[in-house]
Simulated scan of single mutants.
Amino acid sequence: MKRFVTLCVLAMLCMLLAAPGAAMAKKKIKAGFALLWTIDDRGWTTAHYNGIQHMKEKLGDDVEVIYKEKVLGPDAERVFREFAEEGCDIIFGTTFDHMEPILRVARDYPDIKFEHCSGYKTASNVRTYMVRIYQADYLCGYLAGLMGFKDVGTVGTHPIPEPVRGVNAFTLGLQRGLMEAGVEHGETVNTVAWLNSWADPVKETTLAETLIAKNHDLIRQMADTPDSSLAACAADVPAMGYGTDAASWGAECVLSSAMLNWGPYYVKAIRDFQNGTWETGSYWKGFEANGVKLADFHESVPQEVRDKVLAVQEQLKNGQDDIFTGPIFDQNGKKVLAEGERFDDGQLLSMQMLVKGVQGKLAR
Rank of each mutant, 00 (worst) to 15 (best):
I160V: 09
G340C: 07
A251F: 07
A311C: 04
F33V: 06
T244I: 05
F324D: 05
E184I: 06
E187V: 13
L13I: 15
M351F: 08
Q347M: 15
L139S: 03
R342E: 15
E339W: 10
D62F: 10
P101G: 11
Q135W: 01
E69Y: 03
K121Q: 15
W278E: 03
A246R: 02
W249D: 15
R306F: 04
A106H: 05
Y266G: 02
D97A: 15
L337W: 02
A25T: 14
R364T: 09
K58F: 01
W44A: 07
K28H: 12
K28Q: 12
F329H: 13
V79E: 13
M55N: 10
G177E: 08
H216R: 02
E209H: 01
M353T: 13
V312M: 10
A295Y: 15
N215E: 12
G357C: 03
L17A: 13
G276H: 12
A18G: 14
Q313R: 09
D200S: 13
L103T: 09
N125H: 06
F343G: 09
E187P: 03
Q303H: 04
T157Q: 06
Y142R: 06
K268H: 09
L35A: 05
F170G: 05
G357V: 00
D227A: 04
D97Q: 10
R104D: 04
S248T: 15
E339I: 00
E64V: 10
G276A: 11
H158F: 14
Q175M: 14
M353N: 06
L143Q: 10
G60L: 05
R306I: 10
F343S: 02
Q331S: 11
I328H: 14
G145H: 07
R127V: 13
A295L: 12
G177T: 00
F343K: 08
G182M: 08
G333D: 05
V358L: 02
M147S: 01
L10T: 14
G241I: 05
V131P: 04
T157N: 04
D330T: 14
D200V: 12
V301E: 07
V152R: 10
D322Q: 08
F4H: 09
N125L: 07
V301Y: 13
M24W: 13
H185R: 11
G173W: 01
K285I: 00
H48S: 01
G357W: 00
S228R: 06
T154R: 03
M179W: 01
R78S: 14
P20F: 10
R104Y: 05
A199Q: 09
A213D: 08
I160Q: 06
G357I: 00
Y283F: 12
F33C: 04
G360P: 07
D344V: 01
D330P: 09
A23P: 04
K214L: 00
D236H: 11
D296K: 08
G73P: 05
D245T: 06
F297W: 06
L59K: 06
I29L: 15
T277K: 13
G243N: 12
E100F: 03
R127G: 06
A208P: 08
H216Q: 02
E86M: 14
A311N: 06
E279Y: 08
K203D: 04
Y283R: 02
